[in-house]
Design a protein around this nucleic acid. Sequence first.
DNA 1: CTGAAAGCGCTAACAC
DNA 2: GTGTTAGCGCTTTCAG
Lengths: 338, 338
Amino acid sequence: MKEQAKDSKKRVTIYSVAREAGVSLATVSRVINESDAVKEDTKRKVQEAIIKLGYKPNAVAQGLALKKTTNIALIIPDSSFTYIGKVLNGLLDVAKIYKYNIILHTTSVGVNEMNEIIDNVIKSHADGIVLYNDLFTEKELQILRGFEIPMVYLDVRNSGPGACCVYVDYKKAVHDLVTRYLDRGIEDIVVVDDKKNPINVKEVLCGVEEAFAEKGKKFEGFIEIPENAHSSYDYLKKYFKVNRHKLIITYRDSQAIAVLNTCAENGISIPEETEVVCVKSSRYTDMVRPQISSFVVPSYDLGSLGMRILTKMLNGDHIQDKEFKLNYVYKAKGSTRY
Amino acid sequence: MKEQAKDSKKRVTIYSVAREAGVSLATVSRVINESDAVKEDTKRKVQEAIIKLGYKPNAVAQGLALKKTTNIALIIPDSSFTYIGKVLNGLLDVAKIYKYNIILHTTSVGVNEMNEIIDNVIKSHADGIVLYNDLFTEKELQILRGFEIPMVYLDVRNSGPGACCVYVDYKKAVHDLVTRYLDRGIEDIVVVDDKKNPINVKEVLCGVEEAFAEKGKKFEGFIEIPENAHSSYDYLKKYFKVNRHKLIITYRDSQAIAVLNTCAENGISIPEETEVVCVKSSRYTDMVRPQISSFVVPSYDLGSLGMRILTKMLNGDHIQDKEFKLNYVYKAKGSTRY
DNA sequence: CTGAAAGCGCTAACAC
DNA sequence: GTGTTAGCGCTTTCAG
């Protein structure tokens, strides 16, 4: 420990270790990478020197020499850290196992452009990319793909050349849910927009429309909402003063909670008068009262599977399926009658 | 665009640019770093070549040559992504401005050791460290400090050589709160333990104890709770079947919400019979009903200020104060009477 | 103002 | 088995 601290100024390199052990740097390299047979005896000497000097290989130099950084770029929207918690946990656990570092990039719409992020990802020479994000335009994705860096999309159905995805079939999930409601004769159903998750809201919408279409009906209950959470709340507050519906479907937890509160304030009883379903469940859909019915997806797996797939791609393994569908379970809670 | 995509296989280096522009690589380096005067004319030629080839400097090679990676290691507990959202936003915004990348390390207690994280941080040659974490032991911190990498602690009062911190004076916050309650004659106060935030819970406890001591009383209302959220909930459920208190103070939002739910289930009315305060406010303390009284701190600033301080340290600027205290505001909501 | 060359720390042929 | 050496892509003296 003492030595480590003292030597930390003049950083100990592979040369120092070689000198200390009385071998060449190539040998040191061999033992730290276990890349080649080394006599047991010299190996021990080297290892002792490593410990004595507190040597830690310089990943930057390794990156340059190998043209591999073991860095993964993770791109996420700045807003959704609530959801992303468990996903990150899964991602990071697997990344750790395979010795990858995660470099975090957020797409805060105001502060910077997607292009800047792309720039950064390229410059930092990430070996792979994990994209948990709806917000890239097709054009931007095209550019990103141009660099041919292995990429996996999380929670969005989107693959293509050099890219895989781990997704949840929200379309089917909502389709089936709505079908059940239609079968019960409940048709006054609305879907709340979510500007921050355009692709998945579209999937949801699609599912609802199809369910309606299958019954020979047309769905017209899409509620558009301003972008930020505060006015989303305000908007719903106003909206529910005038409008009543039997089933309200939101994508995000915070929107569903907003609906809950608004209904309470306007004397709309849940689930008797109005039922509420939040597509994406979160810790908080369970914490509020009534608890909110929602689709539970294995978030941790979303992250860990995504990362595992990426490591496979980086490893050059051939990947059969490029789209990995994750299971979901509908959890009916207090916000719905069924 | 086209060219970029095509050339991406044989990566374009500083050499390619030099050749294309008909200058030496040194000159190219000069223009991309604006490090030295270059004739306006050649500069233009170089810039054109850069654009034509879609050249992006290799940060890894730069890192090796400069012995500076522009990478910051961010260490956070794996559990608290809920809180950390805004903090990350602040951190990342500033990091972007100063062109730093954030490498994410999480301290999932089960999966890996702190030592592994330290190892990784060192190997990846991060220029600086941001620590949002209670869970390092003093010994581990000692090792980390041994490497003399500039470091800032977030949300914990802890500085020392080579380290700064941005913190909130929870001790005083809770001290003042409890004093007000004692002045009203309310003494049946309890503090719920939080194993995931040991240092800050200790601060809170300290504040309460001092407030009691100042009134010549002894505080004995510390409620210990098992580690994970589920059993925390279970424990409180059992606990509140038997015990009643006038004021319950928790640190985390989820604990406060658990208390809320438990009270509701046991017919304890809030705030009439029992009042609840959550020290750390979050989006969700406002979303539940009743809303939970709590201390609002500028989370975004916590991150952005922390990052700003770190960039100063990395820049070699002398830093006067090493501890930056952030303001807080007590927001009384529906969970308390006052 | 610009070019040549050394070196950052490490890996991977290629010799011995 | 082990050492020698040529890069990886870039910065930075040092000459010119």
